[in-house]
Write a protein that binds this DNA or RNA. Structure first.
Length: 600
RNA sequence: GGAGCGGUAGCUCAGUUGGUUAGAGCGCCGGCCUGUCACGCCGGAGGUCGCGGGUUCAAGUCCCGUCCGCUCCGCCA
């Protein structure tokens, strides 16, 4: 038997018992005559004491112990003694009132010196990933992985309690031209043909609804061959949910219940339900973003009314051209540095602005306002923006003037940049602001491609009241979808929609998206066919599990909550994948590389 | 595809206007120590300053190129 207890189990009440522990050498404190070893397992640490008078052989062996050796100790649980009237209790650890007086020490496996110290901060991501199995030994990482387990368990239990059945769908599936780039898998048995790894089990879960499953879920691995980010990996996990005969309200209630359970069981916190709801354009107009971070203010204010006939030509012309003039008030940021203004200008331009107009409010009087543009404003205009933006001494006002969409984007990004520059979220890390963003547009015109795209996906149902607008292309941009996102602290946790379940409506939707009849038959024939045979009304949602766990663990990257993640370039540095394969393997699957060797 | 930040000892980092033998803390190795818990004390080893080229009497430091890591934009229905 390797152990009778784990390393965070023994307390005063165990004193006198003979126990056995197994684990890693966390620290060695060799005093010469007496040696202290902290033994660590995944639960915690326990101090072991070696003395020559207890067991000369074990004490001698203990001198040879090094960090991360794997050992087994047996001995007697003892109270921490008082030495010269001083307590030796360590209040910093949960087992600090006891220690094990070791009588037997077995070295199960020696460890080489590690490439990095487990108890120190490590900034070298490269090194962490190369030795991920060591990185994961650090308590924070172990805790993250176990929190991930607690969350998936809470979700499974919650969905099970609501009558949902977990069903696996194929990993080898069919490539669809819409959406993200697919990972492809050549088929050996079908030369020249390829499977695609699923970006999401969307069509399969809808077909399960046609199959009469009614309530489906899956903790589903999904794949997208796009560039990576701190919150994006090429393979990631979605909690995929679909149900028949269900309304949006039913889905909201289900998800609010699940997230309540998740945060109660993973972090022990109670979250407020029901979540607030914001419609898409409300979110865009106020926060410039469809996943608003609402833990700080600085909302966007529309000033178009005041500048219709302005002497400031830039604003006037923007409004005449159908655009808007809006601004945010970055409270207390009048002391913005030249470098920061330059940075804010870059952010604005990146979002499509021509430039950045601003006012540094140095004092109460309008003539103390420092700004490249304020000289063009009339006294009435100054008074009006002072009132609408609630301008006070010390504020920084940032303007945007352009089309509504561009201004939303520009000011939305500036708002977040100001937040970062000023640490407005300091002290609010623990706040959990959930909300639903609803009434997304159904379609979005892509200028580059010259065609309409689905904002969510092509299976999303238009709102019943807007369905008739599908007949009139000039109105396509106004059609709202039965689609919704759940947002937490400015992060999109998940999104879903009610789906189209009628064959004709689905075919019409494809035509709107520029998918002709032939292409429909080839790529979507199975789902259009299925809809002819009694498809029930249905809808669902998918939650990004990695992001959810990341936020629950208060981490900044999903890499911290994935056991073996990939780096910026999609490489697993530990196993060195992807890797080249030999010619024979490629020949078997009828694949030939076109990569050119780099010439020096 | 683009932008920003970074790469100096095993790790975390410092290194001034270019100027002696490139430093610190932790870790590591050896020694001492019977109540430590960030143990302490003494001694020691350890460097292709990412790589290549250039400027210079002299480059970790300046210039050019390149590789790698992270972050962001594009992209991600």
């Amino acid at each position: 038997m390797y152990r009778t207890h784990h390393c965070n189990e023994l307390r005063k009440s165990h004193a006198g018992e003979t126990v056995t522990l197994s684990g890693w050498v966390n620290t060695v404190r060799d005093q010469g005559g007496v040696i202290f070893i902290d033994i660590r397992d995944r639960e915690g640490v326990t101090q072991c004491v070696f003395r020559a008078e207890e067991n000369a052989e074990a004490a001698k062996l203990s001198h040879s112990l090094r960090s991360e050796d794997v050992i087994q100790v047996a001995g007697r649980v003892d109270h921490r003694p008082e030495i010269d009237g001083q307590s030796t209790i360590n209040e910093k650890i949960e087992t600090g009132e006891v220690e094990i007086v070791v009588t037997d020490l077995t070295i199960l496996n020696k460890a080489e010196v590690l490439p990095f110290q487990l108890d120190k901060e490590l900034s070298n991501e490269d090194l962490r990933m190369k030795h991920r199995y060591l990185d994961l030994r650090r308590p924070r990482m172990t805790r993250n992985l176990r929190t991930r387990h607690a969350i998936t368990k809470a979700l499974r239990d919650g969905l099970d309690e609501n009558g949902f059945a977990e069903i696996e769908t194929p990993i080898l599936s069919k490539s669809t031209p819409e959406g993200a780039r697919d990972f492809l898998v050549p088929s050996r048995l079908n030369p020249g043909k390829f499977y695609a790894l699923p970006q999401a089990p969307q069509q399969y879960k809808q077909l399960l609804m046609v199959a009469g499953i009614e309530k489906y879920f899956q903790i589903a691995r999904c794949f997208r061959d796009e560039d990576l980010r701190a919150d994006r990996q090429p393979e990631f996990t979605q909690v995929d949910i679909e149900a028949s005969f269900i309304s949006t309200e039913d889905i909201f209630a289900l998800i609010e219940g699940l997230l309540t359970k998740v945060f109660a069981e993973s972090r022990g916190v109670e979250i407020k339900t029901p979540f607030d709801r914001l419609d898409y354009w409300d979110a865009m107009d106020r926060y410039g973003n469809d996943k608003p971070e609402r833990r700080f203010g600085c909302e966007i204010v529309d000033l178009s009314e005041h500048f219709k006939d302005s002497g400031f030509g830039v604003f006037k012309r923007a409004i005449e051209g159908g655009g808007v003039v809006r601004a945010i008030n970055a409270k207390g940021f009048a002391g913005v540095s030249t470098g920061q203004i330059k940075r804010l200008e870059e952010v604005a331009k990146e979002a499509g602005a021509g430039g950045l107009a601003y006012i540094q409010v140095r004092g109460k009087a309008h003539d103390t306002w420092r700004s490249p543009i304020v000289k063009f404003f009339s006294e009435e205009e100054l008074a009006a923006i002072e009132k609408d933006l609630n301008i006070e001494e010390g504020d920084l006002i940032l303007f945007g003037c352009d089309s509504r969409r561009t201004v939303c984007d520009v000011l939305g990004r500036l708002r977040l940049e100001c937040c970062e520059m000023n640490n407005w979220l300091e002290g609010k890390e623990g706040e959990l602001d959930f909300l639903w963003v609803v009434d997304f547009p159904l379609l979005d015109y892509d200028d580059d491609e010259g065609k309409w795209n689905a904002v969510h996906h092509p299976f999303t149902r238009p709102k019943a009241c807007d369905e008739a607008l599908l007949e009139d292309e000039s109105k396509w941009g106004e059609i709202r979808a039965e689609a919704y996102d759940v947002v937490l602290n400015g992060n999109e946790l998940g999104g879903g929609s009610l789906r189209i379940h009628e064959r004709d409506l689905q075919a019409q939707m494809f035509r709107v998206l520029g998918v002709d009849d032939e292409e429909q038959a080839e790529n979507f024939g199975h789902i259009l066919g299925a809809f002819q045979y009694g498809a029930p009304p249905h809808g669902g949602i998918a939650l990004g599990l990695d992001r959810l766990v990341m936020l629950a663990c208060k981490e900044e990257s999903i890499r911290e909550v994935i056991a073996f993640p990939k780096n910026n370039k999609g490489i697993d540095l530990m196993s060195a994948s992807p890797a080249e394969v030999d010619f024979k393997q490629l020949r078997e699957i009828y694949v030939k590389s076109t990569v050119q060797e780099k010439k020096d």
